[in-house]
């Protein structure tokens, strides 16, 4: 990968150095907001991510007032205050949080274009295979190497679980793009694999961003 390419991407992020997180209602209920537009909110924190962030809103349903907390720190960039006190459906976009991108995220976004993606064969839910998951739990995913033929994922489709075998260049699982149990579109990358010989290139990109991004 040449420098000009990296330059181009970096310039792009310099122009809009923000990430946006939408908060959709997880279920139905009447909504009450606890933040205002442009208000600063805190994300999850604590060594074990055990301290919840700012309370964004609550959904009252069947006698249960469920608070929803911000997952990331940033600014409330849009909010559906018109819904205050009203009954909302599930999956309604109610708040968007804007936050300055962190180095790690920029790197992740660039790497997404560099790493070998392993794409979703179908629109389905995916899970790591038991063996890979236990290795990830133990050593972290960057220490898990995969080679063609390994059973790496379980595809959950139509109430059936199908094992997915890895095909492509061998390497380590550098990035994970899916969340277990969340439906992924077909051909979306599920994981980014880094072949051993590419590691120095990737390290170079990382160093570059680390040096240039503040």
């Amino acid at each position: 990968m040449d420098d000009s390419y990296v330059n181009e991407i970096l310039a792009q992020y310099r122009a809009d150095p923000y990430g946006y997180v939408d908060s959709h209602t997880i279920h139905t209920g009447s909504i009450n907001f606890y933040v205002k537009k442009d208000e600063k909110v805190e994300g999850v924190s604590g060594e074990w991510r055990h301290i919840s962030g700012t309370k964004l809103y609550s959904l009252h349903r069947e006698g249960n007032d469920k608070p929803v907390f911000s997952r990331s720190s940033g600014i409330v960039s849009s909010i559906r205050t018109d819904l205050e006190g009203k009954f909302v459906e599930a999956g309604e976009k109610v708040i968007t949080i804007r936050y300055p991108l962190k180095k790690r995220e920029i790197i992740e976004k660039i790497l997404r274009r560099v790493l070998v993606p392993f794409k979703a064969p179908e629109r389905a839910k995916y899970f790591f295979s038991l063996d890979i998951q236990s290795r990830i739990d133990k050593f972290g995913h960057r220490s898990v190497a995969v080679k063609p033929g390994d059973e790496i994922l379980t595809m959950s489709l139509m109430k059936r679980d199908t094992p997915i075998y890895y095909q492509g260049e061998p390497g380590i699982i550098h990035s994970v793009y899916f969340q277990p149990g969340i439906t992924m579109e077909q051909d979306e990358p599920l994981i980014g694999i880094c072949p051993a010989e590419k590691l120095p290139v990737i390290q170079k990109v990382i160093n570059r961003v680390k040096a240039e991004w503040e």
């Binding site: 997880i26 279920h27 139905t28 349903r61 069947e62 249960n64 009954f87 459906e89 999956g91 309604e92």
Partner: peptide
Amino acid sequence: AWRISNYTDPNDILSV
């Protein structure tokens, strides 16, 4: 038609 989280969540169905 009302959008809910899941056909198997009784709470959403009853709240609608």
